[in-house]
Nucleic acid binder design. Structure first.
Lengths: 156, 156
DNA sequence: CTTGGTGCAAATCGTTTGCACCGTC
DNA sequence: GACGGTGCAAACGATTTGCACCAAG
C-alpha cells in the first residue's frame, strides 16, 4: 500500500531546511545524513528507523543502524520529521507538514491522512474550557480500510 | 496530580465483568487476578504495568512482574482496561468506559479526559468518506495545563 | 487429575550509548 | 588540527516467553 511521497519542491525545501538547521547549530553536513534524508523523503512517510535503515542499506552498506536512529532524531529537531507511536514498541516517523491526523487500517496497516478544520477548531475550544494551552495533538481513527472490510467480518 | 478512581458501583461492575469473562472463556479465577484487579481499580487509571506491579507488591510480595503484564493484557481482552501509547516505550493502561479522549500536560504529565459528541460524529463521517469501518480511535491534545502554563513561557 | 496459571530467569525487541577511529569545518 | 560524526558492539528498559511447579475446576 505505498502512497504519496513528496513533490520535488517539498524535497528541495526539506534539503534546505536541514542544511540551515545544521549550520545554525554548528553541526556537520555528512554523506550519511544526505543519504538518509533522500531515502526518507523518497519514502511515503510513516516508517520506522528499521525500515529506513533497510532502505538506505543497499546503496550504503557501511551506514549503521545507530546512525539512522540518531539521524532520524535529528530530523525531528530540524522539523523535517515527526515521531508517532501508533502501537507499542515502535516509533513511526512521518514527513512534517500538514496536520497529523490519520485513518489507520487495523488489518493491513495502511495509513491515510485527513484534515478537518472543524475538528481542529473544536479542539481549541475544548482545550480552552480546561484552561490548557495546546502545543500539538494526535487524532487517529482505527478501523478496516475498504479492501480489508471485505475480508474481515464483524462477528467472529 | 492524582485524580478520579472509580465509584463503588463501577468497581462492582468490573469484578462481575472479569468473572463472567473468565468463566465464559474457561479460564480460572485466581488469587493473583483478584489482587491485581483490585489494585487496578483503586488506582486512578493511566498506569503502566510496572506501576501496578509496585502497587500490588507490598501486599503480595510473591506476585511476579510477568503475571501483572499477563493479567493486564487479560483485562484488556475482558474490556476492563484499555492500553494507550502516549509516549515511546511505555504502555499506559486506563479504565475502560467513557471515550478515550485526553488532554495531556506536556509539563507535569497530568491527564484530563474529555468527550465531545460532535467530534465523534465527525469522525464517523470522515471514516465514511474514505470507506473505512471504524473500530476505535484516539484523540489526544497535548499542551500546558493551567498550573504549568504559568511557569512555562511560550517563547524560548 | 487435568488444564490453565504462576514465578523465575532467560530471551526479545526496539532503541541508546561508550568508545576508538574518521571526516568536515 | 579540533570537534562532531560514525560504526560497532555492548547496554538498556519494557515486555515476552520457556519451563517446571502449583492450584482451580
Amino acid at each position: 500500500m505505498g502512497h504519496g511521497g513528496l513533490r520535488p519542491e517539498d524535497i528541495e525545501h526539506a534539503r534546505t531546511q536541514l542544511s540551515n538547521f545544521l549550520s545554525r547549530r554548528g553541526l556537520k553536513q555528512t554523506r550519511q545524513r544526505e543519504a538518509i534524508l533522500e531515502a526518507f523523503l523518497e519514502s511515503g512517510g510513516h516508517m520506522t528507523s528499521e525500515d529506513l535503515y533497510e532502505r538506505v542499506r543497499p546503496q550504503n552498506p557501511e551506514i549503521g543502524a545507530a546512525t539512522v536512529y540518531r539521524t532520524l532524531k535529528l530530523f525531528c529537531e530540524a522539523g523535517i520529521a515527526h515521531p508517532n507511536h501508533f502501537r507499542a514498541g515502535v516509533t513511526l516517523y512521518e514527513h512534517r507538514g500538514g496536520h497529523h491526523d490519520h485513518l489507520i487500517c487495523v488489518s493491513c496497516g495502511d495509513i491515510v491522512e485527513f484534515e478537518c478544520s472543524m475538528i481542529e477548531q473544536t479542539q481549541l475550544e475544548i482545550a480552552g474550557q480546561y484552561g490548557f494551552r495546546l502545543t500539538n495533538h494526535r487524532h487517529d481513527l482505527y478501523g478496516y480500510c475498504p479492501k480489508c472490510s471485505k475480508d474481515e467480518e464483524p462477528n467472529p
